[in-house]
Design a protein around this nucleic acid. Structure first.
Lengths: 303, 303
DNA sequence: ATATGACATGAGCTAAATTCATGTTTGTGG
DNA sequence: CCACAAACATGAATTTAGCTCATGTCATAT
């Protein structure tokens, strides 16, 4: 029944916090969980051990004798582990020197800048230069850059590629625009203007290919804007619907300036990767930055 | 980035085992995981802490200075926790006295008996009587039984109900029978005999109701057998297809004496619950048995 | 009595951990 | 020196475990 360790570590941590907090609700608060989660966890712990640990006396929470002993063990064990964690943090190898980073314009100016601050703060002896451009491979090979973040494939044997995140695309528009044009399904896009990076509307192909034949819209009314940021502002003003990488409009979606359309349609994704010369990828400063960026991955990139 | 504890406890346990085992593959063996799982876990641990812990020197596994310190902390912390776990196990409150348990015939004689041994062994001072019958509520209310396990609903305010498991049904037959009658879809059942608890075939309604109209079989050739165990033996001999609770044929399915048919069809499930008088549910012996049975839950019941 | 606060419960869902299939690196024997 | 094998890494798909939501129960206060 108990395969490896008799005690389930996450549950113990919950138990430990619960005793300190004094109530399920308070414990849930500290752990950023709901009261329900704490309750489930404690029920499971008591079942797995087969021992009653908590004495629910009406509205006050007590411990059984066994619970008290377990708490003491937790106190000691977690103190040890937390000390070890602090120790690790202090001994985190710090990057130093100079690092020249390249990235695509849109990604670099939004997401990358937004997340570099903590890394810079943690590594005060590191100086970073950013170069935002579309042509990144050349400078990398010429050693004008040490590390680039790009969504193009560069399959060269001298380069080390580290996947960073998948760029997902969204169709979005201003809330008022959706209402005015009654946008419910992709076909409804025929009725209003759409914003495109190019005049011909090829920009939208990525989306159209993901739409089932039945619902294909006719994109007749195209407004070309050759700059993504400008396109976003145009969309916010209600000039039309747009298709952009989700990361570029994370903030607008959150505060409601734009609303995402047709979540069921999933356009093909691009993959952003970090590229570095293999010979230099081993350097501490490069390794640390790579690791830091990969550590962000969840939905910080909107994927 | 690290919300609660800086160190992810399950990953630490993996790290600890890895160092002891000396290799990823060996560690995976001890933890009943794959090598890949260990690799993923360690990669994540090193990323989250931002510290290199393992020195992969070719074919031998070493530790960095930080890794060594972390291992020592683990050693101490886990020793404490394991000791606490042992302590808990020793102080597990034991049931004693006499407990009269009732259960339905089929469930009691198969699954229940199969799983009671460990509980009895762990509680030598407990004497248990089993009563297997279909009429269980009366004896419970009359205090001839202390605790019953039943799939009927007994919504009485004086009773405490504890859900135990969901009884799923399967259609099955002998492998030869399936071949002989070419059973591919439910409609194929028309071509051969089916076993039923009752002569009229109402026993099969539970299944028929889950079959889409298009595929409804005509159950003309019904062989009535008024006992489930006998029905199972009949099916093994190739006398027909049967419909039974999955738990009653777990063993036969495993060793291939019977094969499950139409896994896509999901007949409605019954729920087995433990019922006890509320006034007696608080007693240690009743609580412990309830907890033990609920702890089994996974697929021990075939659901 | 009824309302209120605190925990329990179940179903459904989401996110994380695991596995599968495959690639990469390092040491070994031909 | 090259091919091979052993040990770990990686990505994608899948499974599982844990969380949340909605609701129920119970004890205490009004």
């Amino acid at each position: 029944m108990f395969v490896d360790s008799l005690l389930d570590l996450p549950q113990l941590r919950t138990f430990y916090t619960l005793v300190q907090a004094g109530s399920f609700t308070a414990c849930a608060g500290r752990l950023n969980r709901t009261q329900s989660a704490v309750s489930h966890a404690m029920a499971k712990l008591e079942n797995q051990t087969g021992v009653t640990l908590l004495a629910r006396r009406g509205r006050t929470l007590g411990l059984t004798e066994e619970g008290r002993r377990l708490y003491q063990a937790c106190e000691q064990a977690f103190a040890t582990l937390d000390a070890a964690a602090d120790d690790l943090r202090r001994h985190q190898t710090l990057a130093k020197g100079r690092l020249r980073v390249g990235a695509t314009l849109e990604f670099g100016s939004s997401i990358l800048m937004k997340h570099m601050q903590p890394f810079l703060a943690a590594n005060p002896d590191l100086e970073i230069d950013f170069t935002l451009d579309h042509e990144l491979l050349g400078p990398l090979l010429r050693d004008d850059l040490d590390l680039i973040i790009d969504c193009l494939e560069h399959p060269l044997p001298t380069l080390k590629k580290s996947p960073l995140f998948r760029e997902t695309y969204v169709v979005a528009c201003a809330p008022g625009f959706r209402k005015a044009h009654r946008l419910r399904v992709p076909a409804d896009l025929s009725s209003g203007p759409v914003l495109s990076l190019d005049k011909a509307g090829a920009w939208w192909n990525r989306f159209l290919m993901a739409v089932p034949d039945r619902e294909q819209p006719q994109l007749d009314h195209i407004i070309a804007v050759n700059h993504i940021r400008a396109m976003i502002h145009a969309a916010i003003e209600g000039m039309g619907a747009l298709l952009v990488p989700r990361y570029s409009v994370l903030e607008e979606l959150q505060r409601g300036a734009l609303v995402a359309l047709f979540p069921a349609i999933r356009p093909t994704e691009d993959r952003f990767s970090i590229y570095q010369k293999k010979v230099k990828a081993g350097q501490e400063k490069q390794r640390l930055l790579t690791r830091y960026l990969q550590g962000l991955s969840p939905e910080e990139f909107g994927s």
